[in-house]
Simulated assay, not measured.
Amino acid sequence: MIEDFAQDWPAPTKPRPIVLIGAGGIVRDAHLPAYAKAGLKVAAVAEIDADRRAALARDFAIPRTHTTVTDAVAAHGNSVVYDVAVPPTAIQPILRDLPEGAAVLIQKPMGSDLANARDIRAICRDKHLKAAVNFQLRFSPMMMAARQAVEAGLIGDPLEIEVHLNIFTPWTLFPFLLPMKRVEILVHSIHYLDSIRAIFGTPKAAFARSMGDPRAPGFAQTRTTALLDWGNLRRGVMSINHNHQGGRKFQSAWFRIEGTKGAMMVKLGVDFDYPRGEADELWFCENGGDWRQVPLTGSWFIEAFMGPMRNLQRFAAGEDARLFSGVEDAYETMALVEACFASLEVPAVPLDLS
């Protein structure tokens, strides 16, 4: 039964302390609350902004602070796990400053484009880093259960995976996105593309259209349509609109997953009334049967953020055989993102109206 699947990544037996590199909003709002809930200790934070560094250390009782990555490495070496939560353009130089063989969790996306991702992968290989990317949605209780249900054959042969969002996202909360040429797919729908890969495997090809909206002035893209191609059996569709102005009544944020024997629906609760959000939901139905709701142990925010760090800690200690969101796997998500962006330049087939 789907209710029997584990929804949380197991905790490490002997966790290492964590050194944060970066003290931005995602660290404050998700990483630190998740680590506290998981019983993981934070030893230090490295941040160039003195006020932000001091405020984070004060608010979360972090015992040490460092102004640079070099200082942090000199103080802690390989006795810790590094949590790199910085903008994508800052990832490469930080990785180069980490010690050989370090354990490191890298904030998504894995660089700004596929060339960055390839460079990040090369650095990790050259330095033998135990490196994972924080694609945490695939670690959420709902997605953990959904993935295992597919792997166990509960829905039969996988046929359909669709992501449908019609929501209102307050883009003014993210002014740092204004100068970026790649926005919606790279910073938001990348989560969905990564989870699609985790559940259905990596598609062979992709086609997408992503565009701006006058209701979100200044942002390069806030609406996306994507088609994912595995061949003749599996179908993948993604329809994303962040600008719905009609209130809650007809908003939606769901994964639909169907196979020859059954179907699942996954509600992405955090997308409603962001950042307050609603509860996540997972529903399962065998063909011809009734829908039933699967109890969840937590949500995408914040419980999912425990998973990547737990997996990395266990891998570094030899308790896990692989990194579920390691850089080698994350590179395939970046390749899928790149294919979507590249397809924006491919013209559609014009109608023959002769």
Results as ranks from 00 to 15, higher is better:
Tyr331Ala: 00
Gln313Glu: 01
Ala339Asp: 08
Ala335Val: 09
Glu328Pro: 02
Ala316Ser: 05
Tyr331Phe: 14
Asp320Tyr: 02
Tyr331Pro: 04
Met334Phe: 00
Glu328Lys: 07
Glu328Thr: 11
Asn311Arg: 03
Met334Arg: 04
Glu319Trp: 05
Ala335Glu: 13
Phe315Thr: 04
Thr333His: 12
Cys340Ser: 14
Phe341Cys: 05
Arg310Thr: 01
Asn311Thr: 08
Asn311Pro: 01
Gly326His: 13
Phe341Gln: 11
Val327Asp: 10
Ala317Ser: 13
Glu332Ile: 02
Leu336His: 05
Asp320Met: 05
Leu323Arg: 14
Phe341His: 15
Arg322Phe: 09
Ala335Leu: 11
Ala316Pro: 01
Met334Tyr: 06
Ala316Cys: 09
Ser325Ile: 13
Ala317Arg: 02
Tyr331Asn: 06
Glu319Asn: 02
Ala317Cys: 03
Met334Pro: 10
Glu332Arg: 15
Ala339Gly: 07
Ala316Glu: 01
Met334Lys: 08
Gly307Lys: 07
Tyr331Gln: 13
Ala335Asn: 13
Val327Cys: 12
Asn311Phe: 07
Leu323Ser: 12
Ala335Arg: 15
Gly326Val: 03
Val337Ala: 10
Gly307Tyr: 01
Arg314Asp: 01
Cys340Thr: 11
Glu328Leu: 10
Arg322Met: 10
Val327Met: 11
Gln313Asp: 02
Asn311Tyr: 05
Ala316His: 01
Asp329Asn: 11
Glu319Phe: 08
Ala339Glu: 05
Ala316Thr: 00
Phe315Asn: 03
Tyr331Glu: 12
Gly307Ala: 07
Ala317His: 07
Phe324Val: 15
Ala339Pro: 07
Pro308Ile: 01
Phe341Leu: 14
Gly307Met: 09
Phe341Arg: 06
Leu323Trp: 15
Asp320Arg: 00
Glu328Cys: 08
Ala335Met: 07
Asp329Leu: 07
Glu319Met: 03
Ala317Ile: 00
Val327Thr: 11
Arg314Phe: 04
Asp329Cys: 04
Gly318Ala: 08
Ala316Trp: 09
Arg314Cys: 02
Cys340Pro: 05
Glu328Trp: 10
Thr333Ser: 15
Tyr331Asp: 03
Leu312Cys: 00
Tyr331Cys: 06
Ala317Gly: 04
Glu328Arg: 10
Cys340Ile: 06
Asp320His: 08
Val327Lys: 13
Leu312Thr: 02
Gln313Thr: 02
Leu312Gly: 01
Met334Ala: 10
Gly318Phe: 05
Ala330Arg: 09
Phe341Asp: 13
Met309Cys: 14
Leu312His: 03
Asp320Val: 02
Phe315Ile: 04
Phe324Thr: 13
